[in-house]
Design a protein around this nucleic acid. Structure first.
Length: 426
RNA sequence: GGAGAGAUGGCCGAGUGGUCGAAGGCGCACCCCUGCUAAGGGUGUAGGGACCAAAAGUUCCUCGAGGGUUCGAAUCCCUCUCUCUCCGCCA
């Protein structure tokens, strides 16, 4: 959510910022609604004050033993007025709330202009794509020949966009997640958390997936209503929902390994082959809750933590700053990490690191007590994949493949693989 | 799944229709007193919103959530959620 005060006082500046995303802010609509809200609220407050003082007068009169019957009629009239204006206010307020929940976050000034991913800006590059002395295969072919990736089996179980992993490949998948968790907890100061995979509507509203992106989620028919998490960002960031954090506790750094579930409605026909785009995938997620002044630096650090995974795996990658039109709904600034995939001959997203500033914090009522003001103020939240496990598996299979169809196990993963140095049929 | 008990401010805990946003205690902060790592005294101590350029001030809302009754609800009624105890079942 945007700062309502800013929206009220500088709607033109807000509109200019959001226009960079291609989002048209309807200032006139907001002004009209806001004026109605203000009028209703002032009137409602005034009437309630009148009712309260009248009720006290009734109580006082009764305490004196006076006849209160004559006061009742006025009280009833006041009660009716309060009910009427309250109802009116509730309607306007709700409309305003819904509208505001649909506004994306303001962009950081450093975000490059552009309408879509073609305008994203490469920030840096690490490692060189390997030169193959044979025609590199993609992970689907490699996985099949290792008898480790089975999309047919998955489709019999669940339909399209699922996978069954087997043997060494399944173990490599697990090894990747374990390695990442250990790296972030040991080297980067994150606390491991285990969180629910099913969350409420309120939780998803807190991080911004709802109300706007319900079609991307899997809802579970259950009372109360629950959704499968599309990313651990949702439960982990919401750990601070409705909380006021003491300043000395910040920054909070959490890492979680969870499955993620996305219906990806509207993605039909995109990346239909292989593990790249699935309804279910694992991810190791980094979340930081920081003081507002620190979030810029925290994004750089968090991105570095995600990069460290790829560096340790010796996978070639590049860091890309997302442009205004490609950046996510709740993010002020985002870096994507793209890993080199020999099977596709291009870099593909494997991590997305975002600074959401106070956007989620305002929705979640997540605050810290600012020593400078003594008041509770929204914290800043950041999240990033550190990294997507399924795509990391793809990257390892493709980058470490050998001419004979086997796959070398990256050095850092061997302790997690029982010491084996290569994947064969298992 | 069955039975029961609960949900009040940072914590504990009082409060069954009126001046209660809420006694008392603890904790915390500041001050006073005290010649000493004690004791005592005082003051303060929730969050959100509105009006206002802002401060001050005024005012509204919040006692798990949502409805209802009433001139007036922490208090009465209904629904829901969560927690705890016991039984059953289960990993």
């Amino acid at each position: 959510m945007l700062d309502p005060k800013l929206l009220r006082t500088e709607p033109e500046a807000v509109a200019r910022n959001l226009a960079r995303r291609g989002f048209a802010l309807d200032i006139a609509f907001f002004r009209t609604l806001e004026e109605r809200r203000k009028a209703c609220q002032i009137e409602a407050d005034r009437l309630r004050a009148a009712r309260n003082s009248h009720s006290k007068a009734v109580g006082a009169a009764r305490a004196r033993g006076e006849d209160i019957a004559p006061l009742m009629a006025h009280g009833e009239a006041l009660a009716a007025d309060v009910a009427r204006v309250d109802a009116e206010l509730a309607v306007v307020q709700d409309e305003l709330d819904q509208w505001q929940l649909g506004l994306p976050n303001l962009l950081d000034a450093g975000v490059p202009d552009g309408r879509d991913e073609s305008a994203n800006v490469e920030v840096r590059r690490s490692g060189e794509p390997r030169q193959f002395d044979f025609e590199p295969r993609d992970h689907v072919a490699i996985g099949a020949s290792l008898d480790g990736l089975d999309f047919d089996a998955a489709s019999r179980l669940s339909g399209a966009r699922f996978a069954v992993l087997r043997g060494h490949v399944a173990r490599l998948h697990r090894a990747l997640a374990q390695f990442m968790l250990d790296l972030h907890t040991r080297e980067h100061g994150y606390t491991e958390v285990y969180v629910p995979y099913l969350v409420s509507r309120a939780t998803l509203t807190g991080t911004g997936q709802l109300p706007k992106f319900e079609q991307d989620l899997f809802a579970v028919p259950h009372d109360p209503e629950l959704f499968l998490i599309p990313t651990a960002e949702v439960p982990v960031t919401n750990l601070v929902r409705d909380r006021i954090v003491a300043p000395e506790q910040l920054p909070l750094r959490y890492v979680a390994h969870t499955p993620c579930f996305r219906s990806e409605a509207g993605a039909h026909g995109k990346d239909t082959r292989g593990l790249i785009r699935q309804h279910q995938f694992d991810k190791v997620e980094l979340v930081q809750i920081v003081r507002p002044a620190d979030s810029g630096a925290a994004l750089e650090a968090l991105t570095g933590h995600a990069e460290a995974v790829l560096a340790a795996l010796q996978l070639p990658y590049r860091v890309v700053a997302l442009c205004a039109g490609d950046i996510g709904f709740g993010s002020a600034k985002t870096y994507d990490l793209e890993v080199w995939l020999p099977g596709q001959g291009r870099y593909r997203e494997i991590s997305s690191c975002s600074n959401c500033e106070a956007f989620q914090a305002r929705r979640m009522q997540a605050r810290w007590r600012n020593p400078a003001t003594g008041k509770p103020e929204p914290v800043h939240t950041l999240n990033g994949s550190g990294v997507a496990v399924g795509r990391a598996l793809v990257a390892v299979l493709e980058n470490y493949q050998r001419a004979d169809g086997s796959v070398t196990v990256p050095e850092v993963l061997r302790p997690y693989m029982g010491g084996i140095g290569q994947l064969g049929r298992s």
